[in-house]
Simulated scan of single mutants.
Amino acid sequence: MQIKKHIPNIITLLNLFCGCIALVFVSKLNFEMAFYFVCLGIFLDFFDGFFARLFHVSSPLGLQLDSLADMVTSGVVPGYVMFCLLQKCQDPLSPSVIFPFLGFIITLGSCYRLANFNIDTRQTDSFIGLPTPANTLFIMSLPLVLKYSDSMVVFEILTNQLVLLAITLFSAYILNAEIPLFSLKIKEFSFKKNRLQIVFLSLSVLLLVFFQFLGIPLVIITYVLVSLINNKFFKKQLVIHEEK
């Protein structure tokens, strides 16, 4: 029982370790390896909670460790990546050295969300605001889209400081916006009860297959749009049906 108690926390610390390694790769401008280690960290972040529930060893310590680990992997790392992108596309003749540091607004937004998530009792079966892992994947994919895309339009968009700043500000906003987003957790093996999740996951696979790295931000954007459509139409229909 003692060993089982520590397994979720060890997995959480491995998530933190992945975040630390990703930071080193970002500092060397190796965004691809940083992306892979962040993905591994997010994968581990999913399984620490899974094993905590499986072994019935959830604890306040585990909750705090999880948020602290996520703060690095899904907070500091994407903020650092945006800092690098803003710095890279900055005019060498520009006297401003402060502008690239605005990329860390993502880190501030992530920190606020993670702290708020721990005390928000509404986010047990769904999310309010974009989860930090999803936001992180979006930001981490940008330098890879820039690297592997042959489109001049994409290049011009992702090397424009004002566009990157807009993405930064919107990222911090959407993390903490009062927008309900559906959960991807499948609790019962029933297509009727999980059709939204199944359709979205199927669409995500198609986007990733056809668009590769560009598919990652498209998946995140689709996730938000599908949630908004679901909130606007299908949930309203469900409420009307229940009232009848």
Rank of each mutant, 00 (worst) to 15 (best):
L206A: 15
S27W: 06
L162Q: 14
E243D: 10
F170S: 10
I105T: 13
N116D: 09
S190I: 07
R122E: 04
G62Q: 05
K4S: 13
F46W: 13
Q123F: 11
L137W: 10
E243F: 09
H56C: 06
L54A: 13
Y173R: 00
L130H: 01
M152A: 11
F83E: 04
D91P: 08
F182A: 05
Y36N: 11
F46T: 10
P92H: 08
L137Q: 05
S190N: 15
C39K: 06
L93Y: 11
L68H: 08
F191D: 02
D66V: 12
G103P: 03
G129Y: 15
N15S: 15
Q212H: 14
D70I: 00
Q64S: 10
H56P: 02
L207E: 01
S67R: 10
K187G: 04
L164S: 05
N135M: 13
Q2R: 15
L218K: 05
A52M: 11
I167S: 03
V224Q: 07
D66E: 12
F170Y: 11
F46E: 07
K244P: 00
K235M: 11
F55S: 03
L137P: 06
V163D: 07
F182N: 00
I10D: 01
T12K: 07
I119S: 07
M152Y: 14
S59Q: 11
V97T: 09
L238R: 14
Q123L: 11
I98K: 12
L142S: 01
G75T: 00
N230Q: 14
I216W: 04
I179M: 10
P60F: 08
G109C: 05
N135P: 01
F17L: 14
I220K: 06
Y148R: 02
F233M: 07
I220C: 09
S149D: 06
D48F: 09
I240E: 13
M33F: 11
N135R: 02
I128H: 12
L102N: 01
V57L: 06
Q90M: 13
P8N: 05
I11F: 06
K147F: 02
P8W: 04
I157A: 12
A134Q: 03
L86G: 03
S27K: 09
N9Y: 08
N160E: 09
L158P: 04
V76K: 02
V163I: 15
N9K: 01
P180N: 09
V97C: 11
T107I: 09
C39S: 14
K235S: 09
C20P: 00
L14C: 13
Q90H: 08
N116S: 15
F104R: 00
I21W: 09
L218N: 07
C84P: 02
A115K: 13
F138W: 06
L196I: 14
L165R: 05
F50I: 10
K187E: 15
Y223W: 10
L130K: 00
G75W: 00
I198K: 10
L23C: 13
D125M: 03
N231I: 07
K4A: 12
L54T: 07
N118T: 10
F182D: 07
K147P: 00
T168C: 13
L85F: 12
S94Q: 08
F170V: 13
K244H: 13
A115T: 07
P92A: 08
L40H: 05
D91R: 11
L108Y: 05
F138V: 04
P92E: 09
G75P: 00
F37G: 02
T132G: 08
L207K: 03
A52T: 04
M71H: 13
G62P: 04
L102G: 06
A34H: 02
F210H: 07
C89I: 01
